[in-house]
Computed example of a mutant assay.
Amino acid sequence: MTKALVFGTGAVGSVYGWFLEKAGVTVTAVCRSNYNQVKQNGLLIRSKKWGRNISKPIAVPSVAAAKPYGPFDYILVCSKAFPDTHTLIKEAVTPGSAIVLAQNGIGIEEAYAKAYPQNSIISGVVYLPVVQVELGVVEHGTPLERFEVGTYPASASPPSKAQAEHFAELWEAGGATCHVYDDIQGQRWSKLALNATLNPICALTLCDDANFLRSSEDAFQMACDVMREVGRVAQAYGYNTITDESIKEHMKRHQERMDTGGKAPSMLQDVEHGRPIEVEAILGNAVRLAQGVKIDVPYLRLLYALAKGLNFSIIRDGAWRPIATVQ
């Protein structure tokens, strides 16, 4: 029996664990704020594509509590891609565990590869517009769902390639869509073009995607310009997946929502709930990669600086100082 651990059972993790559950995998889910609800009632998934469903993973409050249910063939990381996330799964990783990253951003895999050099790293690109509307309740509002995966590095061993293929077979057996790529980085860059644009823009403006596009005559073109900037960096690293046609396809979904109702990207959802945002994975790494090939990225640098400021106002760590007052 295949065993999987889902780390980060928010909106995406809830649905992804359900896919594996339907494929006959024994799924253990690390839950935080929704632990009591999932433990008692399971996860309610309401989807325009699959209807109303209940997922019943083994709910645990921590990775340490998950260990008795292992060893795990797959560890599916669905949490936010923060710099230290790779350290949080350490107790669950055993020889033979494949680590599957269902996370946004670029350049996120190296930390896992260094921390777990004997384990397969499967990098995944998520297309799944979902939101946890209340604890233990997830809504999937559009039929879009696709998971694109590939080993890291692309030159990984045949056994690692086989683990990626087997994972995709499980995904398809669960009724979902999974494509395996020999080199997944082209798909990562393509998704980054979208994430590095509308994620920070929506978070900074407090507009959902459709309302941002409604907000001014310049909004649409500005979004496309940021995507083209990401494309120039990707091209310098040998990936030509960001084209005018792909940008048009990305933006088409957001334009259509101007008629059907907008969507709040994950950064905006985090800001609305006072949670930290994925600044480094989505923007910082892209800016540093651009600097590495001496490409000027003024839009990305501006969004990075502003998003760091926004995140600083949320976390207010020891460096934060209150506004001075006159005595």
Rank of each mutant, 00 (worst) to 15 (best):
P200T: 12
G136H: 02
S216I: 05
K294T: 13
V131I: 13
H254N: 03
L206F: 04
V133I: 15
T94E: 15
P83R: 09
A196N: 03
A154M: 03
A290C: 05
A154R: 02
S79H: 02
W320C: 02
V297A: 08
A236S: 14
A59H: 10
S79F: 04
V131C: 05
Y299T: 03
G292K: 14
A307E: 07
H86N: 14
K49R: 15
V230H: 00
R257N: 12
M222L: 15
R46Y: 03
L135C: 04
L206D: 10
C207V: 01
L302Q: 02
Y116F: 15
F220M: 08
A281Y: 11
T260H: 06
L204Y: 01
N240K: 12
M222C: 05
S160K: 06
Q118F: 09
R146F: 07
K49Q: 14
G309S: 08
A113G: 03
S14G: 00
R253Q: 09
A162E: 15
T87D: 12
N41H: 11
D183I: 04
I121N: 00
L44M: 11
D218F: 06
Q269S: 03
A234L: 05
K114M: 12
M222E: 02
A102E: 10
R301K: 14
S62E: 12
P159M: 11
V93N: 07
V100E: 00
K248L: 09
A81K: 04
A168Q: 03
L128K: 03
V38N: 00
L283N: 01
Q235H: 11
A176C: 09
L213V: 07
N53E: 15
N53I: 10
E278A: 06
Y116G: 11
A115L: 13
I122G: 01
Q37I: 14
A4L: 10
V27A: 00
S155E: 13
A210L: 06
C78V: 10
K294G: 03
N104H: 08
S157Q: 08
G107S: 07
A319L: 13
G231Q: 04
L76H: 04
Q163E: 15
A168N: 02
K48C: 13
L128P: 01
K80L: 14
S313Y: 06
N240S: 13
A65E: 13
G284V: 09
Q291F: 01
G274W: 11
E134F: 06
I315T: 15
P117S: 12
G8W: 00
E280N: 02
Y237H: 15
P322F: 09
G318H: 12
A4F: 09
F167S: 11
V6P: 01
